[in-house]
Design a protein around this nucleic acid. Structure first.
Lengths: 203, 203
DNA sequence: CTGCTGCCCTGACAAATGTCATGGTCGGCG
DNA sequence: CGCCGACCATGACATTTGTCAGGGCAGCAG
């Protein structure tokens, strides 16, 4: 049986190289390409047509989820999986929506990762139980479209006036959305609201 | 010549294991211990007395710099080096002050890391050129002791009243420190000030 | 159609925050 | 000593922000 062709995408050279070396020890796995950024991962995938793409969530250029989305459209035969250091509930949700087959933290062992690659290649799915629990308990975003939009604009600490201008809204309206968003998230002010929304992956 | 005894500390199992495997390929390096947290790293170092400790900057329990500080006191013969994914100028400065011999991002190759371990063991030093440039251009923190302290308490978006209580200060005083800190950092409000200070590693 | 619910939007008011002028303390220096 | 500059600390005042009550507009059930 021919080996599983794997694409490895991670911006940390140290990890990528080490991982490639470890996976090379597995007879049934073959790392055919490596990439250090989102766009590069796409280009490599087009060129080498891997069976499974292992993507880091945070990469320069484009994050793992958007790469997965593009791959799904261009190479339907290529399964994708995400490996990340900071797993947030919202990311998991977005990833699954993008057709990602597995989602695991970087705290898993290489042995386990190899198993996951095989599982995914065979058509199976996997999500880290702890992350899954977080995602379920976090639930869906309670924020309305405008609330999320305004919260996003408030993310870098900009004053209300600037947010209002960029959103073409009255300052009072902006305050209201931020206030209701903060209430829904259980925050005392918009800044902690931003932080909480970030943690849950809702922005 | 006997091999260099190395301690590896990183909370991401995937990376730590892969790294250990790669370093094992080098004849003159021997990984004698691994740790997934700050306290564990200390315990392992006490038990195995490595020549060089390779520490991740962000670990549960205690970060790489504080581990390095403790190691310097307990095991003067053990050289320390830091490897990190997010290198901020202030961290580099703190690390050097703690007696760390090398500071590199995780984007270096394993080959390069092996060289660094040898360099450090031989008594040499190394800091990533790009990080060094950032640190120099960022300069020293312009914040006074109280300003930094108050800014830290404001980090999670707590209201002034809470900060004042936790710092045993008047609310007006707290406002003043935050205001002057924001001015020094070129921020419009305390929240962006916190963000900027974080980016520069000053909190 | 009518009433209801949910979302979007606004302005007025109250509370939190940022700015300013001021004073106290400490250490260095002529 | 007397002066100066840097840091710490405070309260009064103006600005910004959060809260509230309410109006307009869709979609939908009865």
């Amino acid at each position: 049986m021919s080996p599983v062709r794997v694409l490895l995408a991670d911006d940390e050279h140290l990890i990528r190289g080490a991982l490639a070396a470890l996976l090379a020890l597995e007879d049934d796995l073959l790392v055919v390409a490596e990439a250090a950024s989102g766009p590069e991962a796409l280009a490599m995938a087009r060129a080498h047509r891997p069976d499974v793409a292992v993507l880091d969530l945070q990469m320069p250029g484009a994050d793992g989820v958007s790469v997965a989305t593009s791959l799904r459209a261009e190479l339907p035969g290529c399964r994708t999986m995400i490996v990340t250091s900071h797993g947030r509930p919202g990311h998991l949700k977005r990833a699954l929506a993008a057709g990602v087959r597995a989602f695991a933290p970087k705290t898993v062992s290489a042995q386990r990762l190899a198993e996951l690659i095989r599982t995914v290649h065979a058509g199976g799915r996997y999500v880290d139980p702890e992350l899954a629990a977080d995602a379920i308990s976090a639930g869906d975003s309670p924020l309305t479209a405008r609330e999320a939009e305004v919260l996003e604009l408030a993310a870098d600490g900009a004053p209300i006036a600037e947010i209002a201008e960029r959103a073409s809204l009255s300052q009072g309206t902006v305050r209201n959305y931020l206030s209701s968003a903060a209430t829904k998230l259980g925050a005392e002010n918009r800044h902690t609201a931003v932080r909480l929304a970030r943690e849950r992956g809702w922005v």
